[in-house]
Amino acid sequence: MPRPTVILPGYFASADDYQILAEQLRGLGIPTAVVPLRKSSWIPTLGGRSIVPILREIDRTVCEMLIRHDASEVDLVGHSAGGWIGRIYLGEKPYCIHGDVTEDTPGLWNARSRIRSLVCLGTPHTSQEYWTRRNLDFVNDNYPGAFYPDVRYLCVAGKSVFGRRRLGGGQWLAYNSYQLTCGEANTWGDGITPIAAAHLTGAENITLEEVWHSPRSPGRWYGSEDVVPLWSSFLLDSVG
């Protein structure tokens, strides 16, 4: 039987945005829960502040799924920022860079023994933004690439919008978002995250044509009915 899966919402997204995705995974026989975040859950993290409140909710959900399904490990599926936040949760380095917790605070990191695989959907693993670099630099300085050899990493990028300084088709938004994320505006991505930032060295990296960033995008996104099978097989293949 597949391991339980926990979905980590993207930045300022709520758990409600991922219920259809969770139902699709359950339909494949994968026990699935979404970290029960609300949009307001993200307010304390604004301006690049600590994501400890999110880590607490992740750990609570993971522990509940382990108990409920009598499992020793879960798979994490992180959408957008949920992917790099999942990398903090996996890692053994104390996430104390904001001074709001101490090195011996339990349940916020070093969860590697409970995580079998991490799936990142449209995750920006790099950033040029001043207000997010502190957190992402912590991740990439301490856990570069697919850091843990005993954890399976899958990074999924969408290729739907080429960034241009042109109105229409999401190109202007993509241009600015790609520039802030990877420093290159004229490139392909999912309308928010450029492909170059969505892939990790050493991970299993795939790019999906005509896939947009989020459920609110104008086209198919990572959780669309015909897109989920293109990456969810990873969760089934990782059994064992």
Results as ranks from 00 to 15, higher is better:
Leu46Trp: 11
Thr187Pro: 03
Arg216Cys: 03
Met1Leu: 05
Ser40Gly: 11
His98Ser: 07
Pro229Leu: 13
Val77Asn: 01
Gly82Ser: 07
Asp100Met: 13
Asp16Glu: 05
Ile97Ser: 03
Val228Arg: 06
Thr132Asn: 15
Leu28Thr: 07
Ser40Tyr: 03
Pro53Leu: 07
Asp16Lys: 04
Gly107Lys: 13
Gly183Thr: 14
Gly191Gln: 04
Glu92Gln: 09
Gly240Asp: 15
Leu55Pro: 13
Tyr178Gln: 01
Arg3Asn: 09
Phe147Asn: 11
Gly82Lys: 04
Gly223Leu: 11
Ala111Lys: 12
Asp75Lys: 07
Trp84Arg: 10
His98Met: 05
Gly83Cys: 06
Trp172Asn: 01
Ala81Gly: 12
Ala81Val: 14
Asp16Thr: 04
Glu92Pro: 12
Glu103Ala: 10
Ile88Asp: 03
Leu230Arg: 13
Leu66Cys: 04
Ile85Pro: 05
Pro144Ser: 07
Ala71Cys: 06
Glu23Val: 07
Arg49Thr: 15
Ser113Leu: 05
Asn176Met: 00
Trp42Met: 10
Phe234Cys: 06
Leu37Ala: 03
Gly170Thr: 11
Ala71Ile: 08
Thr5Val: 11
Asn140Tyr: 06
Pro229Arg: 08
Gly48Asn: 12
Thr187Lys: 04
Val228Ala: 04
Thr123Lys: 02
Ile51Ala: 00
Pro2Lys: 14
Arg116Leu: 04
Pro229Asp: 11
Val239Tyr: 08
Val156Asp: 11
Arg166Glu: 13
Asp70Thr: 00
Pro44Thr: 07
Leu46His: 14
Val119Ala: 06
Gly168Cys: 12
Val211Arg: 03
Lys159Leu: 14
Glu73Ala: 04
Asn205Val: 09
Arg38Asn: 04
Gly78Lys: 02
Phe138Gln: 15
Phe138Leu: 10
Gln24Lys: 14
Arg116Ile: 10
Gly170Asn: 15
Leu180Asp: 10
Asp70Tyr: 00
Lys159Cys: 15
Asp16Arg: 04
Glu184Lys: 10
Gly189Pro: 10
Glu129Arg: 08
Ser72Pro: 01
Glu103His: 07
Glu73Thr: 06
Phe234His: 08
His69Arg: 13
Leu28Cys: 12
Val156Phe: 12
Asp100Ile: 15
Ala33Ile: 00
Val151Thr: 14
Gly10Ser: 15
Thr126Ala: 01
Arg49Pro: 08
Val156Pro: 09
Pro53Tyr: 12
Arg165Lys: 15
Gln171Asn: 10
Pro94Trp: 00
Val6Asp: 02
Leu136Asn: 11
Tyr95Met: 03
Glu73Trp: 00
Tyr153Lys: 06
Pro31Thr: 15
